[in-house]
Nucleic acid binder design. Sequence first.
DNA 1: TAAACTTTGCAATTGAGTTGCAGTATATTC
DNA 2: GAATATACTGCAACTCAATTGCAAAGTTTA
Lengths: 135, 135
Amino acid sequence: MEKAEEILKIKDVNPTAVRILVLRYLLEHLKPQSLKDIEKGLMHTDRSSIFRSLKTFEEKKVVHSIEDGSGMIKYAVCPTGCNCDPQDLHYHFYCTKCSYTYCLLDNPIPIIKLPQNFKMQRANMVVKGLCNKCS
Amino acid sequence: MEKAEEILKIKDVNPTAVRILVLRYLLEHLKPQSLKDIEKGLMHTDRSSIFRSLKTFEEKKVVHSIEDGSGMIKYAVCPTGCNCDPQDLHYHFYCTKCSYTYCLLDNPIPIIKLPQNFKMQRANMVVKGLCNKCS
DNA sequence: TAAACTTTGCAATTGAGTTGCAGTATATTC
DNA sequence: GAATATACTGCAACTCAATTGCAAAGTTTA
């Protein structure tokens, strides 16, 4: 069984054609991909089908989504053991010139003190600016 | 001279009718306001005129914009001495249930180590979850 | 006053995300 | 294995915020 199918089986998601293609596409790419990226990559697959696959994946924790400040939601396959906990996340750097998103893995996100009874679900930490190639 | 007019003069922005109304509206509200918020508040002013005022304000550093994860850009008047430096900013908490945005002023944003030759322009740090009223 | 520039209001467009629906495929039951 | 139920897909259409084109109105300058 291929990796994509295995993951789907483990996460209890029906391994349909579109889902396998989408998941494979995400696995093949290191960087988080947007719906549009995937659509371009899988030229003959319908956008809404990809969209719905991604929603299913998110729900079943196959992938998690990232708002990197580009205006498009990006998706990345959850690594083994990822519980999609916000504290697992890291800063992202979005280059306003070349639109590339970098992960700033060196900087841990500090524990954030929330007011009483506030519950964190997720966090998006985005630094925008110019990357080394564009500055 | 009223406060809004003063600010516009200092920041070298032509004090037109729409601009004064928009800036007054922002000054009257503590929380960052979206284009839609302002549109609702200023019932007889055209959206695109408000939009262009805000763009002008941003350019002239009268206001800065905040992406709080709500999907709508929010605008806030720059406090005196604000140079729109990303380090001046703070975390925001966006309640996914009531859509209210809170400023988490107690948590300073740490200095973020960027790779060589990366230049920060701005930062958006958003925590999403449920606020005390909704949890 | 006329010309040049700025601002405004309206209408239309963009672009990402999302939904309704009918047709197709897959699974379940008899 | 056929009948029925359920899940998935593709297409088209829609939402919603942001943005733009353009001509009219207002303001400044020569």
